[in-house]
Design a protein around this nucleic acid. Sequence first.
DNA 1: TCAAAAGTGTTAACAGTACACCCATGG
DNA 2: CCATGGGTGTACTGTTAACACTTTTGA
Lengths: 242, 242
Amino acid sequence: MPKCNTGHEVLVVVGQVRPVAHPTSPALHVLHVLLWQHTLGPAAGRWALPGGVVGDDEDLATSATRQLAEKVDVRSLSHLESVAEFSDPSRIPGRRVFASGFLGVLPSDADPDIPDDTAWFRVDDLPDTVFDHAEIVARARARLAAKLSYSTLGFALAPEEFTLSTLAQHYAAALGHPVDPTNLQRILTRRGELVRCGRSAPPGPSGGRPAALYRFAERRLRITDQFATLRPPVDVLTEDRA
Amino acid sequence: MPKCNTGHEVLVVVGQVRPVAHPTSPALHVLHVLLWQHTLGPAAGRWALPGGVVGDDEDLATSATRQLAEKVDVRSLSHLESVAEFSDPSRIPGRRVFASGFLGVLPSDADPDIPDDTAWFRVDDLPDTVFDHAEIVARARARLAAKLSYSTLGFALAPEEFTLSTLAQHYAAALGHPVDPTNLQRILTRRGELVRCGRSAPPGPSGGRPAALYRFAERRLRITDQFATLRPPVDVLTEDRA
DNA sequence: TCAAAAGTGTTAACAGTACACCCATGG
DNA sequence: CCATGGGTGTACTGTTAACACTTTTGA
């Protein structure tokens, strides 16, 4: 293989809503990001996104999936999408490397066995990161928040079955602002995303009405609100559906 | 320079709303795309997007701008943005080449001197194109249409000064469905995008009230409708603004 | 005075936030 | 029977598509 003066890597922002132990924290659920720590070289001690060089015979998404499985043992992504390309010629020292930033999402009930040199960090409280990785996290986070609003992406955050309050907490953790469970229910029901399981979750230690369990009708990404305005006339829409 | 087994190119979908001569066509304005024709090799006769290999010391957007200027003499883009990365290892024959697909927009009054081997094509009636270029056009077109709905991107299509009916025709050409000038005016005015020039356009040959001329308050991309739903509560929004 | 084109105003539907109120359960 | 939390219903606001109506021009 000839030596190359440029390379191409993928870097994945793996996001997961995780409970926070500390009881003084206002939010019980917080969006976390998976990072690993450099132990050698000039960046020793600093943290980086999982990823690596793209293989010759794989596309970017395939490479991202493979490297997450190999390097941090993450195999249960509910969503993976490309966010942006980072192409500044001097983004890292040494030879020129393009980076494809991806957003990966884990449902909150997934619990991968991550290696010793990796850890989960609250997205609002990242450690010292390497190169442009903090910017990549910011871009991925913005994408996640935006897409929750106009697509069915919520399924990727949630476990198989959930109560509406926990789902609202998941949305709140990802969006960064409170979400009213009442209104969330109306929106998701109107879109046909929610299905009642029939069963209920046991109430908390201090009593309270048991919460009904729901699941997503379909664990697949769909754009539900494509147009903020200037929507096509209804007759055009119905034509398209035919 | 060592020989590489992979490369990285940019490909730009240059979009422009252009008048259509044929009088039987229902729309007077149609979205067009700039393509150039291969004359040599196995792809001779087929059409391709402008672009080329990214230089060692330029980022992707810089490279796109440079190559449009050098190769098709397009220097008056009103907008340029990255759309997607095309990374299928076999997307083109021969060595592996990543392609960054860009959307470029020309205002309808720009009239670049394009070379002999390039031509404008209606976006709904493309000729035989090379490799995955048709898919890149489709992705860029979808991006343009979506972004018109929730941002100020309309300025990129329009000339410096315009009447509301021509502006509505520009939007209609890019969106692919009719746009009511009345409602367009309300929306853009509420967003503070429109400014009256004071002057009027001369009426057509068959008379009619002369149309007022408008311009955009600001020729800069801004997201105006970020949330389709699940917007943050008002107190959070005002906090952010402070 | 008429046709054509632009601009104004109105209406009805709808979506979304906020919030009050009722219900089910454990202690 | 009371506290705790879940669920339901409603009021209010803002936005938009659709369309009728008025205004201004040339012939």
